[in-house]
Computed example of a mutant assay.
Amino acid sequence: MFAPYRRVLSAPGSLAFTLAGLLARLAFAMTGVATLVLIADRRGSYALAGAVSATGVIAAAVGMPLLGRLVDRHGQARVAVPAVLAGVAPLLGLVFCARTGAPDWTLFACWAAAATAPNIGGMARARWAHLYRDDETARHRANSLEQALDELCFMAGPVLAMLLSTGIAPEAGLLTAGALCTTGVLLFAAQRSTEPPVRPAPAGGRAPLRSAGLRVLVLTFLATGVVFGSLEVTTVAYTDALGHKPLAGVLLALVAAGSCVCGLAFGLVRPRRSPAVRLLAGVAAMAALLLLPVAAALTGAGLAVLAVALLAAGCGTAPTMVSGMTLVQELLPRRQLNEGMAVAVAGILVGISVGAALGGAVAERTAPGTGYWVPVTGAALALLIATAGRRRLRRTA
């Protein structure tokens, strides 16, 4: 099974930047749960925790495309290093304010200012697109590998964040995430041999969002982000209501595990249908499978059954994300890949912020488990958007 991926990683320098980026990805996977636990523990409110988390995600969604544009114009290393260093002080400020009982507005301000980390996943995919620019099958496998690595981090990240935040101190998870993010980005930026060359933009060039197909993708990813954000908050709140809060990380890891396995399997299948068709199939599967956690939670089947349901629900995520990122690479010229993928990820981040806020509000106002309807709604909306805009998801550049 892994032989094709070994061939993909045989490109000179590819293994080095992949391993370096893993640290930053792990940090990103930890921050959501770590922030929620820190604020909920220190302030006693999931609604406040979800709102602060949402603010940071929105700030990242605004800044990430701007950083992506700078990366396209000046190169990955020249932008990534100062960007990640700029977020260290605000992160420490959030921890300090949460611990000392500072006014709630300071939490929002610090977390928004800390959202300066560059889009490591997008920069890694841009490197793959450059390395395998003439090999569609290799690019498909590389994108599948990237998604599997993302999910691998989301398997380990929430578990590690919960262990640190509940076993050591509420601040431990977020501080560790900050250290891993800074280290990972610096190591990734140091891998200069695989960095794509800067391609000057022609005068009067179109912005990525002028592409109708990319607009459809961003809206689809926004709705998919609602799935991610609400699923995380709902699971943490649900396990807390049952008196098993530390198990939230394990349950969220199972979602990522299902996506990781499906991502690796998806990459082994030689593409026969267009990425647009594959995207529609992935979104439809995601919407259907997310009904399983709803049934498990609302029937009171227990955490063991919920775990199986979440594992199955994760299987629709990877095909959706792999196909979507492949479409970004097809819809845009190479000189705009970093900005284009950052715009796509920004859509996901906005959706995550909306989903986190909705999930937190529903968790505080309804019976435990009711919040699992929020990710189902997000997936159904993603399917509706992708279906309505399917004709625009074709190569334009």
Score class of each variant (00 low, 15 high):
A285I: 14
L70N: 05
D135L: 06
L251F: 00
M286W: 11
V8L: 11
A172Y: 04
L231Q: 11
A312I: 09
A189G: 06
A342C: 05
D72Q: 00
A40P: 07
H140T: 09
V81P: 05
G340C: 01
P103W: 05
L180T: 04
R278C: 08
G360D: 01
L38W: 02
G316H: 01
R43E: 05
E136I: 14
V362L: 04
G340Y: 01
L131N: 12
T377C: 13
Y5T: 02
G225C: 01
R390G: 01
M155Y: 09
A109Y: 07
E146F: 05
R206A: 13
G93T: 09
S353A: 15
L91C: 10
R192I: 02
G122S: 10
I348L: 15
D72A: 00
L187H: 08
G369N: 01
A379C: 01
L70S: 10
A363I: 06
T239D: 07
V328Y: 07
A24S: 14
L242D: 05
M162I: 13
L337Y: 06
G75R: 00
F17M: 12
M64W: 09
C315M: 15
L306M: 06
T220R: 00
A77R: 10
V84E: 05
L311N: 03
G93H: 04
G101L: 04
L306N: 06
L291F: 14
L393E: 06
L15E: 13
A288W: 08
P196D: 05
P4H: 02
L222F: 09
N338R: 07
G213D: 06
G157W: 03
L381C: 12
P246K: 03
Y372F: 12
V328T: 05
C315Q: 10
G324H: 02
L23G: 02
W128P: 02
T387R: 15
V277M: 14
V159A: 14
D240N: 13
V236H: 08
A86S: 11
A138K: 07
R78H: 10
V328C: 02
G229S: 05
A363Q: 05
A126W: 03
L92K: 04
L279D: 02
L381S: 06
L331E: 03
R392D: 12
I58R: 07
T220W: 01
G302M: 06
V308S: 10
L310C: 07
F2W: 15
Q191E: 14
E171N: 08
M1L: 14
R78P: 09
A20L: 05
R270Q: 13
A98K: 03
L149E: 08
Y5R: 06
A114C: 11
Y372S: 03
L219M: 12
S323A: 09
R199Y: 11
A11F: 11
A207V: 11
G121D: 03
T224W: 10
L306V: 04
L66D: 13
A177M: 06
N119K: 11
T224S: 15
T239M: 02
D150N: 11
L280C: 12
R133N: 08
S53Q: 15
F266V: 01
P158Y: 04
G302S: 10
V345W: 04
G243M: 03
A295H: 12
G101D: 03
A346S: 10
L268N: 10
A54G: 09
Y132W: 14
V308L: 14
A357C: 12
L66E: 14
D135A: 08
A361W: 14
A47N: 13
